[in-house]
């Protein structure tokens, strides 16, 4: 078809060759072409953060990001390998243990946002955590247990990093 373009997209370390219509968002391509449905579709207009993925380490709303913009970049989603990726694992674990997951629809986006936050700021204070969540809605938890989970994950990861240095 004439309206399609051939692209190659690197997602979670794997290269995919795809033929897509150029106006498809990264969210649509992830969910529909690559069956990576862990990234959620909610508001579709950059307001809720449920679709958050990492592009070159930065958290972006995949619903507002054209798949074409991701060419040559490193895209990471919630399905990204958790083994060997202590950060993602610890964050997920803390979310579950601290009760930060209720319906779970905001959770993948929250986890990815946390990952981006902790990369930049390994021990954020509460204000920094709340600031980082400002583009993320959660209707279930009232955020208290999410903030606690992020604090918990940060503390655990900082502990790991310290031990690694010793």
């Amino acid at each position: 078809m004439t309206d399609r373009v051939e692209i190659s997209l690197q997602v979670n370390g794997v290269r995919h060759s795809l033929s897509i219509r150029p106006w498809r968002t990264l969210l649509e391509v992830l969910r529909e072409e690559l069956a990576l449905t862990g990234t959620k579709r909610s508001c579709g207009e950059g307001q809720c953060g449920a679709c958050t993925v990492l592009v070159d380490g930065n958290a972006v709303n995949a619903c507002m990001y054209l798949a074409l913009e991701a060419l040559g970049r490193d895209v990471r989603t919630i399905e990204g390998p958790a083994q060997g990726d202590a950060a993602l694992d610890a964050i997920q674990r803390s979310f579950v243990d601290k009760g930060a997951v209720q319906c779970g629809f905001c959770t993948p986006g929250m986890v990815m946002a946390t990952r981006a936050l902790l990369q930049d700021n390994p021990l954020p204070d509460e204000d920094a955590i709340r600031e980082a969540l400002v583009g993320h809605l959660c209707r279930c938890t009232g955020y208290v247990q999410i903030v606690e989970a992020i604090q918990d994950a940060a503390a655990k990861l900082a502990g790991c990093a310290e031990r690694a240095h010793e």
Binding site: G38, G99, C103, T107, V111
Partner: peptide
């Protein structure tokens, strides 16, 4: 912790 928590937190829960 919720039984389905990790399933949801890892994006595997099917909505």
């Amino acid at each position: 912790p919720k039984k389905d928590g990790l399933h949801k937190a890892s994006g595997r829960a099917q909505y």
